[in-house]
Design a protein around this nucleic acid. Structure first.
Length: 124
DNA sequence: ACGCTGACTATTA
DNA sequence: CTAATAGCCAGCG
Protein backbone atom coordinates (compact mmCIF):
# COMPACT_ATOMS: atom_id res chain seq x y z
CA UNK A 1 0.00 0.00 0.00
CA UNK A 2 1.47 3.29 -1.08
CA UNK A 3 0.95 6.69 0.38
CA UNK A 4 -0.01 8.24 -2.89
CA UNK A 5 -3.53 8.64 -1.54
CA UNK A 6 -2.14 11.09 0.98
CA UNK A 7 -1.61 13.61 -1.73
CA UNK A 8 -4.22 16.04 -2.84
CA UNK A 9 -5.68 15.93 -6.27
CA UNK A 10 -4.18 19.18 -7.37
CA UNK A 11 -5.06 20.34 -10.82
CA UNK A 12 -2.69 23.09 -11.75
CA UNK A 13 -3.68 24.93 -14.91
CA UNK A 14 -0.03 24.95 -15.88
CA UNK A 15 0.00 21.17 -15.75
CA UNK A 16 -3.54 20.67 -16.95
CA UNK A 17 -4.29 23.06 -19.82
CA UNK A 18 -7.82 21.69 -19.99
CA UNK A 19 -8.42 22.73 -16.40
CA UNK A 20 -9.23 26.36 -15.71
CA UNK A 21 -7.83 28.19 -12.72
CA UNK A 22 -11.25 28.27 -11.13
CA UNK A 23 -11.76 24.53 -11.46
CA UNK A 24 -8.41 24.01 -9.79
CA UNK A 25 -9.53 26.11 -6.88
CA UNK A 26 -12.83 24.26 -6.65
CA UNK A 27 -11.14 20.87 -6.63
CA UNK A 28 -8.84 21.90 -3.84
CA UNK A 29 -11.56 23.49 -1.74
CA UNK A 30 -13.69 20.37 -2.05
CA UNK A 31 -10.85 18.44 -0.46
CA UNK A 32 -10.76 20.57 2.66
CA UNK A 33 -11.48 18.15 5.52
CA UNK A 34 -14.70 18.69 7.43
CA UNK A 35 -14.15 20.80 10.51
CA UNK A 36 -11.13 22.49 9.00
CA UNK A 37 -10.57 25.84 7.35
CA UNK A 38 -7.92 27.39 5.15
CA UNK A 39 -7.09 30.75 3.68
CA UNK A 40 -7.27 32.24 0.21
CA UNK A 41 -3.55 32.81 0.19
CA UNK A 42 -2.80 29.21 1.15
CA UNK A 43 -4.95 27.96 -1.71
CA UNK A 44 -3.31 30.33 -4.14
CA UNK A 45 0.11 29.15 -3.00
CA UNK A 46 -0.90 25.51 -3.36
CA UNK A 47 -1.91 26.14 -6.94
CA UNK A 48 1.42 27.75 -7.67
CA UNK A 49 -0.02 31.22 -8.03
CA UNK A 50 1.21 32.60 -4.75
CA UNK A 51 0.17 36.18 -4.26
CA UNK A 52 -2.99 35.73 -6.28
CA UNK A 53 -5.27 35.25 -3.30
CA UNK A 54 -7.71 37.63 -4.95
CA UNK A 55 -8.28 35.18 -7.76
CA UNK A 56 -9.15 32.50 -5.22
CA UNK A 57 -11.72 34.74 -3.60
CA UNK A 58 -13.10 35.47 -7.01
CA UNK A 59 -13.33 31.81 -7.79
CA UNK A 60 -15.35 31.37 -4.63
CA UNK A 61 -17.81 33.88 -5.99
CA UNK A 62 -18.45 31.53 -8.90
CA UNK A 63 -18.54 28.50 -6.63
CA UNK A 64 -22.26 28.95 -6.04
CA UNK A 65 -22.94 27.94 -9.63
CA UNK A 66 -20.61 24.96 -9.64
CA UNK A 67 -21.52 21.31 -9.21
CA UNK A 68 -20.70 19.45 -7.12
CA UNK A 69 -21.01 22.03 -4.42
CA UNK A 70 -17.91 23.76 -3.10
CA UNK A 71 -17.62 24.19 0.70
CA UNK A 72 -16.72 27.84 0.38
CA UNK A 73 -17.56 28.40 4.03
CA UNK A 74 -14.31 26.58 4.90
CA UNK A 75 -12.32 29.30 3.20
CA UNK A 76 -11.62 32.38 5.27
CA UNK A 77 -9.02 35.09 5.12
CA UNK A 78 -5.56 35.07 6.64
CA UNK A 79 -6.84 36.21 10.03
CA UNK A 80 -9.51 33.52 10.18
CA UNK A 81 -12.11 36.19 9.58
CA UNK A 82 -15.31 35.41 7.64
CA UNK A 83 -14.83 38.13 5.08
CA UNK A 84 -16.86 36.30 2.49
CA UNK A 85 -19.92 35.66 4.61
CA UNK A 86 -21.81 38.49 2.98
CA UNK A 87 -21.82 36.52 -0.24
CA UNK A 88 -23.80 33.71 1.29
CA UNK A 89 -27.55 33.70 1.48
CA UNK A 90 -28.20 34.59 4.10
CA UNK A 91 -24.79 35.79 5.31
CA UNK A 92 -25.29 34.03 8.64
CA UNK A 93 -25.28 30.72 6.82
CA UNK A 94 -21.49 30.70 6.56
CA UNK A 95 -21.04 30.85 10.32
CA UNK A 96 -23.80 28.30 10.88
CA UNK A 97 -22.15 25.84 8.54
CA UNK A 98 -18.84 26.26 10.32
CA UNK A 99 -20.30 25.82 13.79
CA UNK A 100 -22.17 22.81 12.50
CA UNK A 101 -18.79 21.27 11.76
CA UNK A 102 -17.46 22.02 15.21
CA UNK A 103 -15.77 25.31 14.42
CA UNK A 104 -16.54 28.11 16.84
CA UNK A 105 -16.97 31.56 15.45
CA UNK A 106 -17.00 34.78 17.43
CA UNK A 107 -17.15 38.32 16.10
CA UNK A 108 -17.03 37.02 12.52
CA UNK A 109 -13.78 35.29 13.35
CA UNK A 110 -12.81 31.64 13.70
CA UNK A 111 -11.84 30.77 17.28
CA UNK A 112 -8.52 28.93 17.58
CA UNK A 113 -7.97 29.51 13.90
CA UNK A 114 -4.48 28.03 13.94
CA UNK A 115 -5.87 24.77 15.32
CA UNK A 116 -8.51 24.49 12.63
CA UNK A 117 -6.25 25.72 9.88
CA UNK A 118 -5.61 23.21 7.14
CA UNK A 119 -2.59 23.90 4.95
CA UNK A 120 -3.00 22.37 1.47
CA UNK A 121 0.71 22.98 0.84
CA UNK A 122 1.59 20.32 3.39
CA UNK A 123 -0.63 17.80 1.62
CA UNK A 124 0.93 18.20 -1.82
C1' DA B 1 -6.63 45.65 -26.56
C1' DC B 2 -7.44 48.69 -22.26
C1' DG B 3 -9.19 49.80 -17.83
C1' DC B 4 -11.78 48.50 -13.99
C1' DT B 5 -13.07 45.28 -10.48
C1' DG B 6 -12.31 42.26 -6.47
C1' DA B 7 -14.83 36.72 -0.76
C1' DC B 8 -6.63 38.95 -0.47
C1' DT B 9 -2.24 40.05 1.84
C1' DA B 10 1.58 42.72 3.65
C1' DT B 11 3.32 46.95 4.96
C1' DT B 12 3.24 51.59 6.74
C1' DA B 13 1.38 55.49 9.35
C1' DC C 1 -8.04 49.31 16.15
C1' DT C 2 -8.61 52.10 11.15
C1' DA C 3 -6.91 53.97 6.65
C1' DA C 4 -4.03 54.19 2.84
C1' DT C 5 -0.85 51.95 -0.47
C1' DA C 6 1.05 48.56 -3.33
C1' DG C 7 1.28 43.99 -5.48
C1' DC C 8 -1.28 40.63 -7.46
C1' DC C 9 -3.89 38.67 -12.05
C1' DA C 10 -8.23 36.32 -14.31
C1' DG C 11 -12.56 37.91 -16.09
C1' DC C 12 -15.59 41.33 -18.17
C1' DG C 13 -17.43 45.39 -20.94
Amino acid sequence: MKKDSNKLNILKPSENPDTSFFESVFELVRQIPKGRVTSYGAIAAALGTKGSARMVGWAMNQSHFVKPAVPAHRVVNRQGRLTGKMHFSPPERMQQLLEKEGIRVAEDQVVNYDKHFWDPNEMI
